[in-house]
């Protein structure tokens, strides 16, 4: 097996061994969505208006929730430092790990968003726009939360700290995404904003792993 295959296979085995890491954020997302009509209003017209934004915010929080574990246990087990001894650039291996994380932990959240959309009576075309926006924007969000996790590896309570550090980077993505949703509700053109979001994701998928690898190196250099 090549190094790449081994890293991806290990993420799969880990996901199978720790199903809670996948189920918990989904559970959280569904819980938030099902609370909205109870707490706000059961009126389907008003729900339709705020529904897609609620699903977005809940997904963002769920994503932050599960990024906490991205590197922490591998770091304390000494698995992460072994990445440095592979005959590959660390940034490339980190990119693989982030990709696996997106596929195993973020994609399920996106896949259940149509269910959330039905629960909040979001109209069909908006719900499709929501789904596409999430597909396009979450790679960038995954990269940023990975950077937050890597920067705070050495500290306890790293989850909240990482999220705080990364908050400013989330803002442009959320603003663009909500722009797409507003336009979809008006029935106007969404493609330009989606393209911009896509560009954001592609750029962060290329650049952020480099930053993550530097952060990991620094944290390994400061640990025993």
């Amino acid at each position: 097996m090549s190094i790449e295959k081994r890293i991806l296979a290990r993420e799969l085995w880990l996901a199978a061994a720790r199903p809670g890491d996948i189920v918990k954020p989904i559970w959280f997302l569904l819980l938030v969505i099902s609370m909205v009509p109870l707490a706000l209003t059961p009126d389907s017209d008003s729900l339709a208006e705020i529904g897609s934004a609620m699903i977005w915010v809940a997904t963002l929080l769920a994503l932050l929730l599960n990024s906490e574990h991205l590197f922490q246990s591998d770091f304390s087990d000494g698995i992460l430092e072994q990445y440095l001894f592979f005959d590959r650039p660390l940034a490339w291996l980190v990119g693989l790990k982030l990709t696996a994380h997106w596929l195993l932990h973020v994609l399920p959240l996106i896949l259940i968003s149509p269910i959330g959309a039905v629960m909040l009576s979001v109209p069909g075309d908006v719900s499709i726009a929501l789904f596409i926006t999430m597909l396009v924007a979450t790679p960038a969000l995954t990269c940023f939360s990975g950077l937050g996790a890597a920067l705070t590896l050495g500290s306890s309570r790293s989850g909240i700290l990482g999220a705080l550090i990364m908050l400013p980077l989330f803002v442009p993505v959320v603003v663009l995404a909500s722009g797409v949703l507003v336009r979809a509700m008006d029935g106007s053109e969404t493609l330009p904003l989606l393209a911009l979001l896509g560009a954001f994701s592609v750029a962060s998928a290329i650049l952020v792993p480099i930053a993550v690898s530097l952060a990991i190196r620094v944290n390994i250099g400061g640990s025993n």
Binding site: W13, A17, G78, Q82
Partner: peptide
């Protein structure tokens, strides 16, 4: 390099851990 840290993952089986490390 084998250091102080366990270098193995508790949640994985012996063989899976090892498949990953040695390949």
């Amino acid at each position: 390099y084998i250091g102080h840290r366990p270098q193995v993952t508790g949640d994985l089986s012996v063989l899976d851990n090892f498949k990953y490390m040695a390949g």
